[in-house]
Simulated assay, not measured.
Amino acid sequence: MLNTIFGSQIAQMIMLLLYRYEEVYAYEISQGLKLNLRGVQEQLEKFENANLLVSRTVGRTRLYSFNEQSSFVKPLKDLIEVEYKKLSEADKKKIFTKRMRPRRAGKEIINE
């Protein structure tokens, strides 16, 4: 349903990831979901220009989150929640498998 409303799979995935993780960045979205990086960046910029998202820079990474000051965000989150709840557990595992924010500099990597 979100794909139809937003007009693209990239937009749908960004919204689902934002709903789930609250903050996302373009590179991780593109790598985790095997989407075109430039397409992800353009869609994030469109959402930011529409005042649905805000961004902040952490090091060289631009993190995006919902703009809680926008009157459209609450109804949008309600709509995304409906779509999120319809996802099967298998789809959730496939979509939400990776960490969606950058690792802190100097943090030890633990291999499991």
Rank of each mutant, 00 (worst) to 15 (best):
P102L: 07
R104V: 09
F47A: 05
K94S: 15
R38D: 10
I29F: 04
I95P: 01
E81M: 10
K34N: 14
F66A: 03
N36M: 05
N36W: 04
E42V: 10
S88P: 02
F66Y: 13
Q31Y: 11
N51K: 15
F72L: 13
G106Q: 04
F72N: 08
E112A: 13
F96W: 06
N111K: 12
L87I: 08
M1P: 09
E42W: 03
E22P: 01
K74S: 05
Q9M: 12
Q12W: 00
L33N: 02
T61H: 04
M15C: 14
Q41K: 14
Q43E: 15
T97A: 07
E83L: 05
E42N: 15
R60I: 12
I10L: 03
A105G: 07
G106S: 06
I14Y: 00
I10W: 00
L52N: 02
Y25D: 11
V82N: 08
I110R: 14
Y64I: 09
N36K: 07
L52E: 04
G106V: 04
E28V: 11
V73W: 04
L17S: 13
K46G: 02
G59E: 13
S55M: 09
I95V: 11
Q41Y: 03
E42C: 09
L87C: 05
R103A: 11
Q41C: 11
Y64V: 08
E48M: 13
N51S: 15
E48P: 01
A90I: 13
N49P: 05
Q31D: 12
L16N: 00
V58C: 07
V24P: 09
Q12C: 10
G59D: 12
Y21D: 15
T61A: 08
Y21S: 13
Y19Q: 01
I5C: 05
N67M: 09
S70P: 10
R56Y: 13
K98G: 04
G7V: 01
E48N: 09
K94Y: 08
M15G: 00
R56C: 08
R101L: 11
G59K: 07
L16I: 04
G39C: 08
